[in-house]
Amino acid sequence: MADVPNRALITEAAAELLRTLQGRHGALMFHQSGGCCDGSSPMCYPDGEFLVGDRDVLLGTLDVGDGVPVWISGSQFEAWKHTQLVIDVVPGRGGGFSLETPEGMRFLSRGRAYTEEENRLLDGDPPVTGSRYERGERPRDGGTHVVAEASDACPIPAARPAIAHS
């Protein structure tokens, strides 16, 4: 299933910040926030500090350092399952409990809608839930999850040429 797209990616700039945080805090995890206090941002925690529920979905494990799992709530996954999550970083204040907050940077979620073919492939590769993870199941190895820039994963469509009217 090598053609199945990864459900989560990270930009090189965000991976660099993640490596710094790993050096300071050890193993890390992300949980894609569903809104409320910190908006819809990827929250970075020491691995295991955020309790993953039985219905939470593991989007993938980013190949940064020893690996960084990316989780999302099951109900939010249902709304986002047709979208590839791309974790990026921008200057600003991070979410109140997210580890990047003191760095003057914040992780940011970007997304790209899957093509019909990608959705078909993903339908045949269901994600691992918290309960399945607890039983020892792990997602397939999807190769690298690091992209140079967000635009590499989420290209901006070319502008349509203006139509000349006579």
Rank of each mutant, 00 (worst) to 15 (best):
P126R: 03
D47H: 13
T129S: 07
F30E: 01
R135C: 07
R24C: 10
G35V: 04
S75D: 15
G92C: 03
P46W: 08
S98L: 02
R55M: 12
T129L: 02
P155N: 05
A15L: 04
V68Q: 00
D141N: 02
A150K: 13
D152N: 08
S73H: 11
W80L: 07
V70W: 02
L28H: 02
A113T: 09
V146F: 02
C44S: 04
A158D: 09
G35D: 05
M29H: 04
S98M: 04
S75I: 11
R93F: 08
G136W: 06
P157S: 09
L108W: 14
Y133T: 01
R55E: 15
P42R: 03
E12W: 15
P91R: 12
P46S: 09
A150M: 13
P126S: 03
P127G: 01
A2K: 13
C37W: 10
L51P: 09
G96T: 09
L21T: 11
V4L: 08
D54Q: 12
H25M: 10
S109N: 13
H25Y: 15
V90F: 11
L85D: 11
E137Y: 09
M1R: 14
D3A: 15
F107G: 00
K81D: 09
V4D: 04
E78K: 10
E100Y: 02
L62G: 00
G67D: 01
R138K: 05
G34C: 09
Y45V: 00
W80P: 09
W80N: 12
L17H: 13
T115W: 12
H82C: 05
M43E: 11
P126M: 03
V57E: 05
R135A: 12
S75V: 13
R135E: 14
P102K: 00
C37Q: 14
Q76Y: 14
V128I: 08
M43P: 03
L99V: 02
C44K: 03
D125R: 06
R55K: 14
P157T: 06
V128A: 01
V89G: 04
D125P: 01
L59C: 08
G34K: 06
A27G: 07
P91I: 07
T129D: 05
W71C: 00
A162E: 14
A148Y: 06
N6T: 13
C154H: 07
S131F: 05
E12S: 14
G142F: 01
I163H: 12
H145M: 01
Q32R: 10
P5A: 09
H165R: 11
A13G: 12
G124M: 05
V86D: 06
N6L: 11
S75P: 14
D141G: 01
R132S: 05
Q84F: 10
V70T: 00
G92E: 08
A158C: 03
D88A: 07
E134S: 11
T144Q: 00
R120L: 08
E103H: 10
L108Y: 14
F50N: 07
L108M: 11
A13E: 14
C154T: 08
V147A: 04
